[in-house]
């Protein structure tokens, strides 16, 4: 196909185009998936609104009590209505998003990073290294997540950083097992053997040959986890172990809403919708990204 003279002449421009290419190529493939684009638009819109929260509705609105507006339904003054203390629900959802989403995203990344490194090391080196890591992991996993997180938060106190630590420790175990099994499979393959025969060291082989090939699976899991962590974080807040009040936080808002389910469902609907939307958009993006990273699907 490319043997004709014309493509030989085009060579130069093609090269410059393709050099910046890898990322652009992935983006091009990503754009092809409708779901992924919708997810991305949703997420960007949500992030923009949340980042601009201070401009749209000052933080004071989210914490200022105004008992005359107690449980007020949505209206032109308070588009999402007000909660049991008369605080503006819209402002609380916005500012709550900051905490909830940043905790979810950061905790996902830290647990993914920690877990992937441990999993890669265990899978690649095998033998004693593997045994030590996996037995330690068994101990970790024998304690139920929720109990473990509770212990950390109770011991260290509930704040942003400790919550991150607790969530990371609760979730990294999944990645260790996932990445380890991927690495075990991939290390068998001939191109890893070939890379070794070419003189590549272990770190390089893991970084350039194994991780990129395991990326699809890791990404899908990561995006699933963002959603899980948002929900898990809500559970913690629900149990009174999340961010301390009056700081707004989606899970906390759900827990506060439960006493007024019958009379004021809007207290539940808005934060719940925010959780569902963010979880959905992240999952859609993850699916699209997985496909985009796989050169086989390129067309």
């Amino acid at each position: 196909m490319a043997f004709e003279g014309s493509s030989m002449q085009k060579g130069k421009t093609e090269i410059t185009f393709k050099k910046q290419g890898q990322a652009r190529e992935i983006w091009r493939r990503f754009k092809k998936s409708k779901g992924a684009v919708i997810g991305l638009v949703m997420l960007v819109a949500m992030l923009a609104v949340i980042l601009l929260a201070d401009v749209i509705a000052p933080y004071s609105l989210a914490t200022k009590q105004n008992l005359s507006q107690k449980l007020a339904p949505p209206s032109s003054g308070h588009i999402f209505g007000c909660d049991a203390y008369g605080r503006d629900l819209f402002a609380r959802v916005l500012h709550g998003g900051r905490t909830s989403l940043s905790i979810a995203v950061i905790a996902t990344m830290t647990s993914c990073l920690l877990g992937s490194i441990l999993g890669a090391v265990a899978g690649y080196f095998g033998k004693a290294v593997d045994s030590v890591i996996m037995r330690a992991l068994d101990i970790f996993m024998s304690v139920p997540d929720i109990l473990f997180t509770m212990a950390v938060v109770v011991a260290l106190g509930a704040n942003f950083i400790n919550l991150l630590v607790a969530l990371t420790l609760a979730y990294f175990t999944n990645y260790v097992r996932l990445v380890r099994s991927q690495v075990l499979n991939l290390s068998e393959l001939e191109y890893v053997e070939a890379a070794r025969a070419g003189g590549a060291g272990s770190a390089r082989i893991i970084a350039t040959h194994i991780i990129p090939n395991a990326m699809g699976v890791i990404i899908v899991n990561t995006t699933l986890n963002v959603a899980k962590i948002i929900l898990y974080e809500s559970t913690l807040s629900f149990l009174g172990l999340g961010m301390p009040p009056p700081a707004p936080e989606w899970g906390l808002m759900l827990s506060e809403a439960r006493s007024f389910l019958r009379t004021s469902p809007h207290l539940l609907i808005f934060p719940a919708a925010a959780i569902v939307l963010s979880a959905c958009s992240v999952n859609l993006i993850g699916d699209g990204l997985r496909d985009a990273l796989d050169p086989h699907l390129k067309s």
Partner: peptide, 15 residues
């Protein structure tokens, strides 16, 4: 340097 038997699997599919 070494060349392995099966070219189908001796190259990294994502590079």
């Amino acid at each position: 340097a070494m060349v392995f038997q099966d070219p189908m699997t001796s190259l990294n599919p994502v590079m």
